[in-house]
Design a protein around this nucleic acid. Sequence first.
DNA 1: GGGTTACGTTGGTCGCCCCCACGACTGCCT
DNA 2: AGGCAGTCGTGGGGGCGACCAACGTAACCC
Lengths: 154, 154
Amino acid sequence: MKREHPAAEAMPARVAEMPTWLISRVYAHARRLLAEGFASVGVRGYHYRLLAALEEFGPASQAVLGRRTSIDRSDVVAALNDLAARGLIQRAPDPDDRRRNVITITPDGTEQLQALDEVVAGVQERLLAPLPPADRTQLIGLLTRLLEDDSEPA
Amino acid sequence: MKREHPAAEAMPARVAEMPTWLISRVYAHARRLLAEGFASVGVRGYHYRLLAALEEFGPASQAVLGRRTSIDRSDVVAALNDLAARGLIQRAPDPDDRRRNVITITPDGTEQLQALDEVVAGVQERLLAPLPPADRTQLIGLLTRLLEDDSEPA
DNA sequence: GGGTTACGTTGGTCGCCCCCACGACTGCCT
DNA sequence: AGGCAGTCGTGGGGGCGACCAACGTAACCC
């Protein structure tokens, strides 16, 4: 009955309360939860983000998608290949700019996305479970502020 | 003058405020800062964690080190190889248990660790820069609570 | 028209996390 | 004493997320 993970033991003190460490732990936890949820549908984070961007902003070029989702151009290609292979998106050359592809989400894609939305919502809930609503907004606010000042003013 | 990163553009709304997303962004940010800091010394997160564990708890077997730092046994081997090659740690067979190696941090290792400690402290500062002290403790508290209830009570 | 910029794509790297299998060895239990 | 369970070090593999370099094509702008 003692399966569990290798057993945590004790972490070096200087690390235990280090924000970067806490972040990475929470990240690992979140990623795990997401992976669990996505696994059932055979999908990864990249796929979800791309589908979401497509559904919210409509058809777009791969480069734009990449910028919107913070995914590298290269990785967008691969992820879209996967999605196209499953018929969740459609790739067509842009008549107005022959360098581009216009990516469109298909009905199947929209459907899949809705299912994923529920999965993701469940994950948020599971992740934040230990916090009462007020603290959740607090946390979201704090995290957001960490990112706002991200760009170096220099 | 606007080379920057690809340029953020706009994120899908359903994702933008999603805790898992914020976490992953903050994590990416933190990781970058750490990587920058560590790069100058040619060291990675694993190395730092191991050195810290050695300095705080004293010599230990590789398995114990792995448990203390949450690093997989396999990865501990590789990281220790690196550290040993630089003379920052020393590997010796344990006379009391011939399955084990006893890992000891060398004076050079301690020295290196101190340098790294400063680097890491600087990174924490840079990461939390947008937040006043009160909010920093708030954040740390919230993150910690997300982790506490991590293990399923079952 | 010629230089610069943007696009899609290929093909890598790296950090971190994780699993499996093996041989060597210990420890415990009977 | 003998045997089985469990540990330890090690090597192998894989996966995900982020990132970078380079190319050929096409558009842009002066």
